[in-house]
Structure formats: C-alpha cells, structure tokens
C-alpha cells in the first residue's frame, strides 16, 4: 500500500486524481443512468403522442415537462408532504402489525413441525386472497377508514414476513441449537441469542417483500373513504382533471417505493452474517 501512495504525487502534483474517480462513477452510474434515460424517453414519446392525437390533447399534462414543473411546485410549497405523511404513517403501522404478528408466528411454525402441518392449508388459502378482497370486511370491522387501510396493508404484508421467518428458522443448523442447549441456554436465551440473530436477515428479506406488496396495496386502499394520502391525491387530481398533478404524485409514489426498498436492502446487508464472497 505504501508504495502506491508514494508514487501518486509524481503524476498528480498537489491535486486530487480525478481520472480514477470519474472512471469509478461512470462504471457505477452509467447503466442506471441509461435505464433512467430510456424510461424518460419513452415517457416523453408517450406524452408527445397523446398531445398530438386528436381527442387526447386534454391529457397532455401527463408528459414529463408539465409533470416535473408541477412536482417542483408541490415540493417547494410543501404540499407534497400533506399527501406523503399520512400514507407513510399507514404503511408504517401496517408493516408494524405485520412484523408483530408475522415474526412470532413464523418462528413458531419454523420450530414446531406439528404447527407447520396444521397451519399449511389455512395459510396458503388465506395468502392467495387478494388483500383488496378484504376491503368490505375491513370497512365493516373497523370504525375508521384509517384503521381499515392499516388492516389491509397488514393483511398484505404479513405473509412474506411470516413465511420468510419460518424459512429462516428451518434453515438454522441443528447443531447450533444443540451447542446452545449444551451451554445452558433456556428458551428465552435461545430465542434472543441464537434464533433471532440467525434469522435477522431472513426477517428483513421478508419485510422487503412486504414493503413491495404493501406499497402496491396502499394506493388503491386510499381511494376509499379517506381524504388524505397519495391514493387520495391521485383520485382527487383525476376528479379535478389536473393530470400534471396526477403524474407528479405517481412519480412521488415510485421514488418513495424505491427509497423504502433501498432501506430494506441496507438492513438485510447490515444483519447478514454470511461471509462476503
């Protein structure tokens, strides 16, 4: 290492070497930027076609230009947060319930074969029901629209968390249990020191899938009843024919979803104990 440092000043006297940095950024960013470029180009093309087709001119607000202009306004006025915050609260609460129910249930199913056998058919059956099909039930069962939406998010999110936790437990090396028992671990210590650390990454992998489904379920769920949130904002913009606002909200939804997924990926990495290859 020393020799590398010593030779550096000879070429880039007193300054930072820009070439390697630029090359690094290019290598890391070139493909993602190309992907974003293609998406924007297709979007622009679609907007152009809409604007130039007789009968659809009134939807021209969908094009990138008006959309980003409107997005800028929404951001600078702070209006965007009025839609984002309630949605994030609902998804946060829904995910919290999904984790509080899914992780213990998943661990129990992973540990006890009998429980696994008993729950298999009911869980596979329930899992296949679209969360949105629960809508009427949710509306009847909960006093507030907010609670109903949280319920729908939780119903969508619980399955990936549950199955992923159960999978994680079943993959634990049986010798890890034996060694811990041998060292005098009681049930609670086994959970806290062995099982949870062993499956932490599986739990977060489940949460990552759950965030994906929950975020998809959230928007249609917010079409109903409530007067806040991103789903409501979309519906409202449609009713008032503000297509640039509608498209701007769609962009916001996509960006937040992307960020939430990134957070999950970071957590999975953070809790992974597998040796980096």
């Amino acid at each position: 290492m020393d020799s590398v440092v010593n030779t550096a000043p000879a070429s880039g006297k007193g300054g930072i070497e820009w070439a390697p940095l630029t090359r690094f950024l290019m290598a890391r960013l070139a493909y993602p930027l190309a992907g974003i470029g293609v998406l924007l180009a297709l979007w622009w093309l679609g907007g152009w076609v809409i604007a130039n087709t007789p009968g659809t001119e009134s939807f021209a607000g969908f094009a990138p230009g008006p959309t980003f202009a409107r997005l800028g306004e929404l951001l600078s006025s702070g209006e965007v947060w009025i839609a984002v915050v309630p949605s994030l609260e609902r998804i946060g609460l829904g995910l919290l319930w999904a984790v509080l129910i899914g992780v213990p249930a998943g661990v129990a199913i992973g540990l006890f074969a009998a429980l696994r056998e008993v729950s298999h058919v009911p869980f596979q059956f329930l899992r296949m029901i679209s969360p949105l099909a629960w809508m009427p039930v949710a509306v009847l069962a909960f006093d507030t629209w907010d609670a109903a939406i949280v319920f729908l998010v939780a119903v969508a999110a619980v399955w990936p968390v549950l199955f992923s936790s159960a999978q994680g437990v079943r993959r634990i090396d049986p010798l890890w249990f034996k060694v811990a028992r041998n060292l005098g671990a009681d049930g609670l210590q086994m959970l806290r020191r062995i099982i949870f650390p062993a499956i932490a990454q599986d739990i977060f992998a489940g949460i990552r899938l759950a965030v994906g489904v929950a975020w998809i379920v959230l928007v249609p769920a917010e079409y109903l009843g409530v007067t806040s949130g991103l789903g409501y904002a979309i519906n409202d913009a449609r009713d008032t024919l503000e297509y640039d606002t509608l498209a701007a909200v769609v962009v916001v939804i996509g960006v937040i979803g992307f960020v939430l997924d990134g957070v999950c990926v970071t957590l999975i990495r953070r809790f992974s104990w597998h040796e980096e290859a």
């Binding site: 090396d173 010798l175 890890w176 034996k178 060694v179 811990a180 041998n182 060292l183 005098g184 671990a185 009681d186 210590q189 020191r193 062995i194 650390p197 062993a198 932490a200 104990w273 597998h274 040796e275």
Partner: peptide, 25 residues
C-alpha cells in the same frame, strides 16, 4: 460440556462473544 466434530461457532458473534456465551447464559 460436549464438543462436536464441527466447531459450530456463531457467525454473528465475535470470537470473544462465542467463548463467553456459556457465561452469558
């Protein structure tokens, strides 16, 4: 205490934490 053919150390703990596990329990 029993030792097995596989060391079965816990990869989410440091070497020292593995050694101290019985004491922690």
């Amino acid at each position: 205490n029993m030792m097995f053919q596989k060391p079965s150390l816990y990869p989410w703990m440091s070497v020292a934490d593995n050694v101290g596990l019985g004491l922690a329990f």
